[in-house]
């Protein structure tokens, strides 16, 4: 691998308050990991609420889960997994000074993210069609499978958990759009890749959250 590192020279990507690119990269990564620790604690509150609900209303949760389509959830799991792979390959391409590869894998990851949102949106649409709205708006139609009024608790939490996850996907897509613009400008290289890697870390965290959401919401009957 050719050494493409100009630590001694002042890189145009080096912020004035850092001594070197490596120091800037280390600071950026540390900040991102601290942010992700916070994200983990944020989602842990929602997972704890799920555990609480499952303990308090086991029958209602089982009933609520019967409306979940594990096939659609499974497809979404595979899509997110593919997106994690393409995102990792994207960072690898950037670090190998492969601009075409970086752009290609970034676009592939964005397509996966969009597909995920479309499937998740259609799932929500199906639930709304049955009248499974959250909280006080819960009003199942006559032919709906779930008529237990307590099921509003399950659907309330389901919408919050998947909604917050979906919001993170949207934020991730926004970050990737920005990264795509920068990648097209040829800003990423083996020397300057920390913002792309931080975006990748964020995306993997979103994948990790779904790794737990899928079995708990769709499979744990």
């Amino acid at each position: 691998m050719s050494a493409h590192n100009h630590e001694g020279e002042h890189s145009k990507f080096l912020a004035h308050h850092f001594k070197s690119m490596s120091q800037q990269t280390a600071a950026g990564k540390l900040g991102m990991w601290i942010f992700m620790a916070q994200e983990l604690l944020f989602f842990s509150g929602l997972f704890c609420a799920y555990g609480f609900m499952r303990f308090m209303y086991p029958d209602m949760v089982t009933q609520g889960q019967s409306s979940m389509d594990w096939r659609l959830g499974g497809i979404n799991s595979v899509i997110l997994l593919v997106s994690s792979l393409t995102m990792s390959l994207c960072v690898r391409s950037a670090r190998s000074n492969n601009k075409a590869g970086t752009v290609k894998f970034l676009v592939a990851t964005m397509i996966c993210g969009l597909l995920f949102l479309v499937i998740k949106g259609s799932e929500w649409g199906m639930h709304f069609h049955e009248g499974y709205f959250p909280g006080k708006f819960f009003n199942p139609v006559a032919h709906a499978e779930i008529q237990d009024p307590l099921a509003h608790i399950f659907f309330g939490l389901y919408y919050v958990m998947t909604g917050m996850h979906g919001l993170h996907i949207v934020v991730g897509l926004g970050l990737m759009t920005w990264m795509l613009v920068r990648a097209n400008r040829g800003e990423f290289s083996s020397e300057n890749y920390v913002s792309l890697e931080n975006t990748s870390l964020f995306w993997h965290l979103v994948d990790i959250v779904w790794i737990f959401l899928y079995p708990l919401l769709y499979l744990a009957k």
Binding site: N5, K19, S20, S22, Q23, T25, A26
Partner: peptide
């Protein structure tokens, strides 16, 4: 070209 020993450590960690 590294300015300090701390930087060398960072460099080792990130590259």
């Amino acid at each position: 070209s590294e300015h300090s020993s701390g930087d060398q450590k960072h460099s080792h960690n990130n590259e």
